[in-house]
Computed example of a mutant assay.
Amino acid sequence: MDTLLAIFNSKVVLTILIPLLLLSIKYLAVKGVRKRAKSKREDRRDLVNNIKNFLNFLMIILLLGIWASEIQQFALSIAAFAVAIVLATREFIQCLIGFFYLISTRPFRIGDWIQVGEFVGEVNATDWIKTTLLEVDLETYQYTGKTLFIPNNKLISSAIKNLNFLKRYATHRFTIVRDESVNPFVFLDELLAKANSYCEDFHDVAVRYNQIIERRLDVKITGPDPSIRVATSELGDTEVEFTIFCPTDRALEIEHALTADFMHMWFAQKALLPAS
């Protein structure tokens, strides 16, 4: 009896000491990596996330090893309720499976921009249960300030789109709609020259980045030169669509500049029309 009590007490002590030790190691390791990354101005969130997940996994394995015999006896005693337990914890189990799918296939890394279903954001952290995203608005390529917590089971049931290339350069499209009173082909060449001038300072980098994306995806993508397409809507209005391959942080700036140029040219041309 005394021997059993001693064994039990030693297991309790180890159960307390192991988490304290591993949590201390995790705290010091994460603090060290972040301090080093800050001094070198590097993004090491992926390494921090891997350290946390590895030490959490190690802690669970060690605790299971300590209490393996007790857990086995407990599992046998509740075998009759196994089906009910599986059904009750189905979502939790699916999240665990989703985590193992994530670490085995590596569809994205910390810092990547991804889309899961209708949710878009930058991957900030992953753990056994969820993936944390910092929401990104693809219309403006800006952070919305919202944090999304995606259960890992969604990674299995939903398509994952890796949008990481959009972090630096994006194929930005926008459309201006006006009535049919002015022929835009009159000033289309001048407008295209304006678009090229706005993209001139980063044109060489855009060409190289465009080629990198095409090599990795093994497909031909739009760009890097700007293009303008003129069409008509179902109501008969004139639609002018711009396609610009540019840095994401300058997409709105270039869109506003081209919109201003278009409006100036459109109204100038309209002023030349005879009064009706």
Rank of each mutant, 00 (worst) to 15 (best):
W113I: 10
V86M: 08
E253Q: 15
R106K: 15
I7Q: 12
L96W: 13
F245W: 09
K154Q: 14
K38E: 14
Q94R: 12
G98S: 03
Y27R: 15
T171F: 07
Q115T: 03
C95H: 02
D204N: 10
P19C: 09
Y169R: 06
Q115Y: 02
K220P: 00
T140F: 02
S10N: 12
F108G: 06
I114W: 06
A84G: 14
G223L: 08
V86H: 01
F165T: 11
S181Q: 10
W266T: 00
A125N: 08
G111D: 05
F54Q: 04
M265S: 11
Y141V: 02
L273D: 01
L138Y: 04
V219Y: 12
I25Q: 06
N210A: 12
R173Q: 11
T222R: 12
I93G: 01
A271I: 09
V186F: 09
I7R: 12
I254F: 07
T89W: 04
R216A: 10
E122L: 08
A268E: 11
V86F: 11
V230W: 11
K130C: 04
K220W: 07
I93F: 12
M263H: 08
V205N: 09
C95R: 06
T171S: 13
L252V: 10
L102G: 01
E122N: 03
R250S: 08
A82Q: 05
A251R: 11
S233I: 06
V48Q: 05
E70P: 04
L102Y: 11
E214A: 14
